[in-house]
Each structure stands twice: as structure tokens, then as C-alpha cells.
Amino acid sequence: MNLAIPYLMFSGNCHEALQFYESCLDGKITSLRTVAEAPFDVPKGMEDRIFDSEFKAGSVHFKASDDMPGNEVTVGSNFALFIGSPDADERQRVFEKLSENGNVTFPLDNNFGMVTDKFNIQWMIARTDA
């Protein structure tokens, strides 16, 4: 194994979440496949849900999808995404955008902050060296 990236699971709003993260992190959805494109029989009414996706913003990289009937996810606090930047202005901008309609867990000071965004995803924003 030489790669570990977070995989986020959503309850039907994966695409909306990815678009939100694009705007917050100046990133890009690099791949997006719907359930209709999945290599298995598609449950009726689920065709537009996300089967698999990938997101990249600089060195931030994760995969995401929607849950499926029988495998529903419970939004919780079992993970966080850690992102860092040497640039204080960038940290502040990202923190503020992620905080919109979310909950600040730990206010951003000079080097660290935590926020749960409007999709109940926890983020840690920290100062890192360039």
C-alpha cells in the first residue's frame, strides 16, 4: 500500500457537497460516476446518486459517493479531513467558507481551527510548512 486518502459517504447529497468543496477549496471534481453508470443493477429511483467520485485541490485528495439502500450511512464524528497551508489568508478564507451554515468547533487562531460544515463533515485547518 502506498496511498491513503479519505473516502466520504453521503446520504444522497454527494454531488452538492462536492460542488460546495470546489468553491471552498478552489478544487476540482476530477471524476464523477452516477449509480446509472455503475457495473451492477441499479435500484429504481437511485440512478442520479453518486456511485464514485474523486476530488482534488492542490494536495487535498479524496473520494466520495452516496450510500445505497441497505448500506445507509449515519453522519457522525468518526473522521475529519485535515488540510494545511502556510498562508494565513488562505487558511482564513477556507475556514470561513467551510463555516457557512456549519458549526465552529474550535475557532481559527493563527495556526489551527476546527469546523463541522453544513454536511456534518469535520475539518481541521492548520498551518503547515510550504
Rank of each mutant, 00 (worst) to 15 (best):
G45A: 04
G45E: 04
M46D: 12
M46A: 10
M46G: 00
M46H: 12
M46T: 12
M46C: 12
E47M: 09
E47C: 05
E47N: 03
D48P: 00
D48W: 06
D48Y: 08
R49G: 02
R49V: 01
R49D: 03
I50D: 02
I50F: 11
I50L: 03
F51D: 07
F51Y: 15
F51N: 14
D52E: 06
D52V: 01
D52F: 15
D52S: 13
S53R: 11
E54C: 12
E54S: 15
E54T: 14
E54K: 14
E54Q: 15
F55N: 04
F55L: 05
K56D: 02
K56N: 05
K56Q: 12
K56C: 06
A57R: 02
A57Q: 00
G58S: 05
G58Y: 09
G58Q: 08
G58E: 10
S59G: 10
S59K: 08
S59R: 06
V60Q: 00
V60H: 00
V60S: 03
V60M: 10
H61I: 05
H61Q: 13
H61K: 11
F62Q: 02
F62H: 05
F62W: 02
K63N: 10
K63F: 08
A64D: 04
D66Q: 05
D67C: 04
D67H: 06
D67E: 11
D67A: 02
D67W: 04
D67Y: 02
M68V: 11
M68N: 08
M68D: 10
P69Q: 09
P69S: 11
P69K: 07
P69R: 05
P69E: 13
G70P: 01
G70F: 01
G70K: 08
G70A: 09
N71S: 12
N71Y: 13
E72Y: 04
E72A: 10
V73Y: 15
V73R: 13
T74W: 03
T74D: 09
T74C: 05
T74Q: 11
V75K: 09
G76K: 06
G76P: 04
G76E: 03
G76D: 04
G76N: 13
S77K: 13
S77C: 10
N78I: 01
N78F: 08
N78H: 13
N78E: 06
F79H: 06
L81G: 04
L81K: 00
L81C: 07
L81E: 00
L81M: 13
F82H: 14
I83Y: 01
I83V: 15
G84T: 07
S85F: 10
S85M: 07
S85D: 11
P86W: 00
P86D: 12
P86S: 12
P86A: 07
D87W: 06
A88E: 14
A88P: 15
A88I: 09
D89N: 15
D89G: 15
D89P: 01
D89Y: 09
E90C: 04
R91H: 03
R91E: 07
Q92H: 11
Q92E: 14
Q92L: 11
R93W: 04
R93D: 14
V94I: 15
V94L: 07
V94F: 07
F95H: 07
F95Y: 12
E96M: 05
E96Y: 03
K97F: 09
L98C: 03
L98H: 05
L98T: 04
S99P: 00
E100Q: 14
E100L: 14
N101L: 09
N101I: 01
G102L: 06
G102C: 06
G102S: 05
G102P: 03
